[in-house]
């Protein structure tokens, strides 16, 4: 933690700079979302990449995660592991399960026969 006045003044400059960078990235995200890339998935990837960079800047600089104590990293490592499990396993068990193409189409047919 920066505690001496000089270091704090230094970090203030850094904070303002990062704030500016974030704003620029926001403009970039909005702008790029209107550019049509070959597929929409590519748009999504670019958008999420920019968002991730922004989030990383906030986490690393604003939340001081670039020089935090080991304990915090340990807590976050566990959390991230379980959060990933939450994402991946939901997705996997969905794509294999009942909710597949055939199932949805069959209900759609029932709907259209009404």
């Amino acid at each position: 933690m920066a505690d001496s006045p000089e270091e704090i003044y230094k970090s203030i400059r850094k904070i303002k700079l990062i704030g500016l960078v974030l704003a620029v990235f926001t403009v970039l995200t909005v702008g790029l979302s209107y550019v049509e890339l070959p597929t929409h998935s590519l748009n999504m990837m670019v958008g999420m990449l920019l968002a991730t960079i922004k989030a990383a800047l906030v986490a690393l600089i604003f939340m001081h995660l670039n020089h935090e104590k080991a304990l915090v990293y340990k807590i976050l490592a566990f959390t991230v592991a379980f959060a990933v499990a939450l994402f991946v396993l939901f997705y996997l068990s969905n794509s294999e399960g009942l909710i597949d193409e055939g199932f949805e189409n069959s209900t759609a047919i029932i709907e259209s026969q009404e």
Binding site: F82, A85, L89, L92, S93, E96, G97, L98
Partner: peptide, 18 residues
């Protein structure tokens, strides 16, 4: 314990791999 939850859901037909 975080990685076993779907054993309550065998009957939902989530597929053999899962």
């Amino acid at each position: 314990s975080f990685l076993v939850w779907a054993h309550h859901m065998y009957l939902t037909g989530m597929g053999t791999m899962m």
